Simulated assay, not measured.
Amino acid sequence: METLWRVVLLLVVLDFTLAQNNPTYVKKGWTLTLDLRPPLADRITSILWKLNGFPMAELVETPAVSLDYYYRFEGRSTLDITTGRLEINSMTTTDSGRYTVEVNNKVHSTCYDVKVIEGVPKPMVVVKPLACGPESDQCKLTCVVENPEAEPVRYSWKGDDGDWTESGKDLIISKRNDSSVKNFTCRVQNPVSLRDSEPQENLLFEEKPEPQNNPLLEGNPAAPRLWVLVLGSVVRSLAILALLVAVVYVVWLNRETVSKLRCLCRSRKGEEDAASYVNDDYQNQL
């Protein structure tokens, strides 16, 4: 019997430790649902839910069913007499704590460590130092959230349309590594909500000169004009070549006429040479 009680006590301690390490987060104003873990196989004749050791909801069958809600939980709680499930509406931060339950006059292993937190507000990116500018080598960006009741929170950053990277609330940027990024955005999230800041302009951003594209590439505004010039030169060259071919072809077709003309020219030149010779000889005789 003593060994059995030790085992039960060990299970209770273990469950309490797991509950402390794995809290159940609830957003302020939402509904909290508490189930028996594991579900009870026997019929429930009595059940008592407690918060930090204080009774909050109780059901007793003696023999009529008596159902009572205590303190601030009256009017916003519902206890299922069949399953033992307890629902609490409009949760507030004062409802945070350790929830335990007794079923059929025995301590049940169910234990919830509940933390009621608020949703995170929209964060804001603050640039430090104030003198941060294009001449700076590096700057610090801080993701600011002004609501301690939203804890615990996690921070993530991204540049332009890149992927989110989880880090701390501060981000160090440098001209060497981040000058090509135009904007930075921070994200804050807790177990019940998530919000992004407005993009913050990168004061270290440097506009990179666009590479000169080949004007022959498609999409370049100068390409059509260049193609017109090239095409015009080709057309002119072809026209000149065609004219030369036509001249050669015409000469070839009239090659006999050209040959006769050449012979006639040679005959006339011979006659003129002969007449000149006779004239010179006659003058010499005189």
Rank of each mutant, 00 (worst) to 15 (best):
P215I: 01
Q212C: 11
E206Y: 08
Y249P: 06
V251Q: 14
S233I: 10
P224K: 03
G232H: 04
S233G: 10
G219W: 00
G219I: 00
F205E: 07
V250Q: 15
A222W: 02
R262V: 08
N213T: 01
V234N: 08
E210A: 06
A222M: 03
V250S: 15
A222P: 03
K208F: 02
V228I: 06
S233L: 07
P221S: 08
N220W: 08
E218G: 07
C263V: 06
E218W: 02
V247H: 09
S259I: 08
I240V: 13
P211F: 00
R262Y: 10
K208P: 01
N220I: 09
L216R: 04
N213F: 00
V234P: 07
N214D: 06
L238D: 13
A223E: 00
F205R: 06
E218F: 03
V230N: 05
A222Y: 01
R225M: 02
L216M: 06
L231H: 07
E256D: 14
V247Q: 08
R225I: 03
L244R: 14
R255V: 11
W227T: 04
L216H: 03
A239S: 13
E218H: 04
G219A: 02
L238Y: 14
V235F: 05
Q212R: 12
L226W: 01
V247C: 08
L243G: 08
C263S: 05
A223H: 00
V250T: 14
W252K: 14
V251L: 15
V245E: 09
V230H: 05
Q212H: 09
L226N: 03
W227A: 05
R236G: 10
N213P: 05
N214M: 08
F205K: 04
L253R: 11
T257E: 13
T257F: 14
L244A: 15
G232T: 05
V247L: 11
N214G: 04
K260A: 09
E218C: 04
L226T: 02
R262P: 01
S259E: 13
A242P: 09
R255G: 13
W227V: 02
N213H: 03
L229N: 06
L231G: 08
F205H: 05
S259A: 13
A239V: 12
L253C: 12
N214W: 02
V230Y: 07
E210L: 04
